[in-house]
Structures are given as structure tokens and as C-alpha cells.
């Protein structure tokens, strides 16, 4: 059976990153133990189109109560592939974000910014045969957090992905190009320097729809079957 490519620790943040204070008591003290791959690592959950509702990829509509959500409409799309460039078709992509004012609908978000009655802020879709996904949403705002004095999170969208096996699992955040908060953010900067730009979407005029919404492209690369069969 084919093994999966290992987790690339040069791409991922460390488990304890003291600039992000919460990692100090939550990151494990010992490194993960390398173990052999088995059938349990070569398999993973499968989500069909039945998991997806008709408005799930349109965050400008899936939370409407009595009007349109406020803020700047944007298109966020991209391609999910493995490290060999092969598309990951049928991948479940889940996404969640705050609203244009920087407020999450989550009940424990205490930030003093308004909720938008017409914006829920979460969606999902399944990639097509070429690994492509596409969401319509509202550009999220920046918001303060308690990590250090005058700490602000850069605008970001949370992504969750399933790939070819459970080891392909990924939760990440997409950022926007040119955000002045990026060099100051300990979560973004927890990523090794050479890999950070992979989390910054690019503006794309071809994706942009005239008179309607700016387009951003965020391509995602997951662990997939290793190119050289093992065993």
C-alpha cells in the first residue's frame, strides 16, 4: 500500500510558541512519537455532496434574516492539491470568520463591535474534480485580542480541510495581502518564515467580478500519497 508523505515540520508552527501565550500551557512538552503507518493512516472520512446545503458556499446568503450583510463582498476560491500537484477532488472545505466589523457570532466573543443580523460567517463546500472550491463572503475585519498590549488579529478566514486520508487533515487561516498587522501577529508568525506567504491569498483580477466583488485566490496543499510506493 502507498504511504503518505510525512508532515513537513518546516512548514508548520511549533507546538509551543511563547509569543502566542496560550501555547505555553497547551502545547505538549514532548515531541510526537514517530510510529509506522498502518491502514488507519491510509484511510479517512469521506464526505459527499449530501453533506452540503445549497447556500453553504454563499456566506452572503446563508445567514440572511431581513436583508444583505454589511461589508465588502469578496470571492475566495482556490485549488486543493497534494504535494505532487495532483488535485484533491471531493475534499470537504469548511470555513468560518468574523463579520466586517471584526465580530464573531460565537457566543463567547466579547469584542465591542456590532453583530450583523444578516451574517452567520460559516460555510462549507466540496471540491470539484479539479480540486477547486469557491466561496462568496464578506471581507472580515480585524479585531483585538488579549495576547499582549494592543494586540490585533489581522483579517483572516479560518479553513478546515479533509484530504485523501486522516493524516491529510488541516486546519489553517487565510490572510489578505498587504495587511499591516501581519508582521505583528504571533499566530501568523508562528509559521516558519519561509512558509508564511503560503497563508496569504493573492488578489486576482480574473476572479474579480465586474461591479460585484473582488476576487482572492488561496490554493491549499495537503499531505497525499507519497510518490514512491512503500513496502
Amino acid at each position: 500500500m502507498t504511504a503518505f508523505s510525512p508532515r513537513d515540520w518546516s512548514a508548520h508552527p511549533p507546538l509551543v510558541h511563547p509569543d502566542y501565550g496560550s501555547t505555553v500551557l497547551r502545547g505538549p512538552g514532548q515531541p510526537p512519537v514517530k510510529v509506522p503507518a498502518t491502514a488507519s493512516e491510509r484511510t479517512g472520512p469521506v464526505f459527499g455532496g449530501a453533506s452540503i446545503g445549497s447556500l453553504d458556499a454563499d456566506l452572503t446568503r446563508n445567514g440572511r434574516v431581513n436583508g444583505e450583510p454589511l461589508g465588502e463582498r469578496i470571492i475566495v476560491c482556490g485549488r486543493v492539491s497534494d504535494e505532487a500537484g495532483r488535485p484533491v477532488a471531493g475534499a470537504l472545505v469548511e470555513l468560518w470568520q468574523c463579520n466586517a466589523a471584526g465580530r464573531y457570532i460565537h457566543r463567547t466573543d466579547q469584542h465591542d463591535a456590532p453583530l450583523d443580523p444578516n451574517f452567520f460567517g460559516a460555510g462549507r463546500c466540496v471540491t470539484d474534480g479539479e480540486g477547486r472550491y469557491r466561496f462568496l463572503t464578506i471581507r472580515p475585519g480585524a479585531y483585538p485580542w488579549g495576547n499582549h498590549h494592543n494586540a490585533w488579529r489581522p483579517a483572516h478566514i479560518h479553513f478546515s480541510l479533509f484530504g485523501a486520508s486522516i493524516v491529510s487533515r488541516l486546519v489553517t487561516q487565510m490572510y489578505f495581502p498587504g495587511d499591516p498587522l501581519l508582521p505583528l501577529d504571533p499566530i501568523f508568525n508562528g509559521v516558519p518564515e519561509g512558509a508564511r506567504d503560503r497563508l496569504v491569498a493573492r488578489f486576482d483580477l480574473d476572479v474579480t467580478e465586474p461591479g460585484f466583488a473582488l476576487g482572492y485566490v488561496f490554493d491549499i496543499v495537503l499531505r497525499g500519497p507519497a510518490q514512491t510506493p512503500m513496502e
Binding site: 504535494e83 478546515s160 503560503r198
Partner: peptide
């Protein structure tokens, strides 16, 4: 070759 997309925290508001 494409490289793995880095992980980020799920955060408190998932």
C-alpha cells in the same frame, strides 16, 4: 513542487 500549507490554530471561536 507545491509545499504543504502550514497549520494554524482553530482558535476559540470555531
Amino acid at each position: 513542487m507545491p509545499r504543504q500549507t502550514p497549520s494554524q490554530t482553530v482558535g476559540p471561536f470555531f
